[in-house]
């Protein structure tokens, strides 16, 4: 359910009749949905329901078999691989369950990497990365390598990296799935804070607690279809 003020906001994500088949298996079966700027949307559903595929479509990591995926006005189906990479670089930040940090780089360089790929100088990228790490409360661990960081710290570094290029949309795939409960709570707080300052969020999770704490809208997916949409009341 969207309010009047919600409907006045710009649509960041629009899926229209998206199908995705893997051979005979249907991962997505005619999904249509919209996400507006500043929204925090959680996607839930049982394993294999298609929620990760949905996230991949929005991130431009995978292409639909049919239907349209528009993010920030861009029809992703019309972009080639390079176009999709540039799209992700400019408009999307991603957080993964297993962090996906580069083991050979310290926290600061892992974060700076996203900006450096756009051609930003190393010095500027590191300055911005340090600001983000500072905002996330782990500036003191900037020179630490992933192997020596705790799970929560690793996910904070991953969040910082995702925010590096000021993306319009932050995608999180089970962001607390590999964390203990305390670290999980810290990451949830972080996501809430980000949403409160206007960051659009799309969270895929199994965890109802994460969904209800961080999201204002819940999309339940079953058998590749949107089974139910509901508005969530903040619990924090």
């Amino acid at each position: 359910m969207t309010t009047d003020s919600d409907s006045s906001r710009q649509v960041v994500v629009r899926l229209e009749g998206v199908h995705k088949d893997y051979g005979d298996a249907k991962a997505l079966d005619g999904v249509s949905l919209e996400i507006r700027a500043g929204e925090a949307v959680a996607v839930m559903g049982p394993s294999g329901c298609g929620k990760s595929t949905l996230l991949n479509m929005v991130a431009g990591l995978d292409r639909p078999t049919s239907g349209t995926v528009r993010v920030h006005g861009e029809d992703l189906g019309r972009l080639n691989e390079t176009g999709l990479a540039l799209f992700r670089r400019r408009h999307v930040g991603m957080i993964f369950q297993f962090f996906n940090l580069i083991d050979d780089l310290p926290a600061l360089d892992n974060v700076a990497l996203a900006a450096q790929l756009t051609g930003t100088s190393a010095r500027q990228a590191r300055r911005r990365a340090l600001e983000l790490l500072d905002e996330l409360g782990i500036a003191g661990r900037k020179d630490t390598y992933p192997a020596a960081l705790s799970g929560g710290e690793r996910q904070r570094v991953a969040v910082a990296r995702a925010l590096m290029n000021r993306p319009a949309l932050l995608l999180a795939d089970e962001p607390t799935g590999a964390l203990d409960s305390r670290s999980g709570e810290q990451v949830m707080d972080l996501l809430i804070d980000l949403n409160q300052i206007g960051q659009t969020l799309l969270i895929v999770t199994h965890d109802p607690h994460l969904a209800t704490r961080c999201a204002s809208r819940l999309i339940e997916v079953a058998d590749g279809r949107v089974a139910r949409e509901s508005t969530l009341e903040p619990t924090a």
Binding site: L61, T82, R89, R90, L117
Partner: peptide
């Protein structure tokens, strides 16, 4: 592979 996937996910182009 994991690093490559991550790098591509944050915008590394095929050419890069």
């Amino acid at each position: 592979r994991r690093d490559l996937g991550m790098l591509k996910s944050i915008g590394m182009t095929p050419r890069q």
